[in-house]
Amino acid sequence: MTSVTINGRTVEVEPGTTILDAARAIGEWIPTLCFDERQDPFGACRVCMVGVEGAPAPLPACTTQVRDGMVVDTRDATARRVAGAVVELVLSELPEPPASHTELAAVARQLGVSGTRWPGTVHERDHDDRHPYLALRHELCISCGRCVRACDEVQGTFALTATGRGFDANVAAGLDQGFKDSACVSCGACADTCPTGAIAELSLLDLAPEPLHEVTT
């Protein structure tokens, strides 16, 4: 077993455990956007940065494995500053703020990011409603890769892909012909994991018009 101290609490975990898994096991919160526990860590969003004693800079909790004796501070000031700055950048690429019930909106609230100060290009609105109940709103895609990995790692259908590169990166079904005419089996795993509502089930959208009632649990 490997011993790691997180926010002052020492725990024993299996070798190879990530900082994120170790922290969650003891109830310590670390913000994430591209992480889904049903999928392999991806390391793309860089919102899960944490301070590690002796490391020159913050490290991503989702892809960094614990080492024996490691001391982690999930509330490290530099790490939180970077995480907040990244979320602000993410908000800046969307043509509208994320719906309040989405994971992105929740992470922004928890990091105290209320909006974005960045002017500049935003994603163009592009709605694909060809499927009877899976809607794809390209402009809300933040390229976290969760839908693509859900389709690959969870469902094994491979109907989705990342597209483009750089700021223009996005997601598409099949040869961009929409869910209906791709290999999609309408399982909904992509909509289930999407943190922004870029992929959503139409019936749920109809049932839940904005603003959503917030529940604190």
Partner: peptide, 10 residues
Amino acid sequence: SCGKCFPCRI
């Protein structure tokens, strides 16, 4: 930028 990580992409 390859578009994978958020800081670089945006």
